Simulated scan of single mutants.
Amino acid sequence: MTTPDFDRRCAEIARQTAQLRDLVEGADALTPVPGCPGWHLGQLVRHVGGAHRWVEEIVRTRATREVPDDAVNEVAPRRAEDMAALGAWLDEGAGRLVAELRAAGPGARVWTVLPGVTSPAFWARRMAGETLVHRADAALAVGAEFTATDEAARDAVDEWLSFCDHPEAYAPLPGSPAVLGPGRTLAFDTAPGAAAGGGSPTGGAPPADGGPAASGSPAPGNTPSAAGHPLTCDAPGPTAPARWLVDLTGDAPVLHRTAAPAAVTVRATPTALLLFLYGRPVPDGSLDITGDRDLLTLWRDRAAFWLT
């Protein structure tokens, strides 16, 4: 039996891939990708297509253990390529992935990067967000406007925030400030009317630090540990308030999907918040940040552990 969220995310993979293909088809494969320093457009497309094929194999074979992901992280060297042909290759891989996800359904059991999470629903959500973020990278690279539906952007934001309770995101590090502590709370608000009110391009927030390491796919050597809590694949629905509170005052972070006062608050559209959390450039005036910006910088850097 399938679910509306699962079906929507499968459709989102296909939709985002088609839009990504349209962006790159007439572009130069050697165009630098600002959101992924050191990569060019051809490498970006091969990374996304490699991720689709990697997950397709996992789901198709009902893998119960880790599958090598060389095609994801070891992208091709710099070279001129026919982007129309590469776009067709990308589209083919996404089609195969979506077909396998739908054939398996959310009730099947497959390996994922998270201990205790075995549903293809994880991969449907992960690949929808992966493709969306890299479409933003492609748009920036070719000078096109990036837009996303609130529903797709909010779902990707919710997934990103859901990783906050894994030890890599908060465990003490030698020589680094503590993430947990009294009064440490962060609020994120993307509800209607929560758009920025004149902050700076980054609002004093963490700098954009994307790149190959910030690909959007948890790297095999840097996945959440078994000590962390299982990641939920649920998210606010289309009509739910798009607000989150990250509570750092206890023994481990707790994510609440609610509005509440916090030590630092970020207000933005869903798309702007998505770009901010993923360390991508954010348009001027898109973020309204109030409160403890140092806490936001510290937490944002640590919570991005799964992108390193």
Rank of each mutant, 00 (worst) to 15 (best):
A178I: 03
A178E: 11
G181W: 11
T131V: 15
P206T: 04
G175F: 11
R126A: 12
G193R: 11
A195I: 12
A208M: 07
P174L: 14
M127A: 11
L132H: 05
T223V: 15
P172C: 09
L140G: 02
L173T: 07
E159G: 01
L132I: 11
A196G: 15
F146P: 02
A195Y: 10
G193T: 11
A148S: 13
A213G: 09
G221R: 06
A205R: 10
D209M: 14
P206Y: 05
L132R: 05
V157R: 03
F163K: 05
T131L: 12
P218Q: 01
G210H: 03
P212L: 15
G216R: 06
A226S: 14
D165E: 10
P120I: 11
A144E: 15
A144V: 12
D158H: 11
E168P: 11
E151V: 14
D209I: 13
A138S: 08
L180M: 11
A196E: 01
P177M: 10
F122I: 03
F146M: 05
S200R: 13
R154P: 05
A195K: 12
P224H: 00
P206I: 08
L161I: 06
T149G: 15
L173D: 08
R125D: 01
A213P: 01
G221W: 07
F188T: 03
V179F: 08
E168A: 15
A136P: 14
W160C: 04
F146A: 00
P207C: 02
G193V: 13
F146D: 00
P212E: 15
A121D: 13
T149D: 13
V142M: 09
N222D: 07
V133K: 00
G198Q: 10
A138G: 08
P192S: 06
P218F: 05
A169V: 04
G198S: 09
L186T: 09
D165L: 09
T147Y: 02
A139C: 13
H134I: 09
D137F: 08
R125A: 06
G143E: 09
E130R: 02
A128W: 02
A171V: 07
A169F: 01
A219C: 05
T202C: 10
P218G: 07
P192E: 06
L161S: 02
A214E: 02
A153M: 02
G216T: 07
L140A: 10
A139I: 09
P177Y: 04
D155K: 05
D155T: 14
P167I: 11
G204A: 11
A226W: 13
L132E: 06
A153N: 01
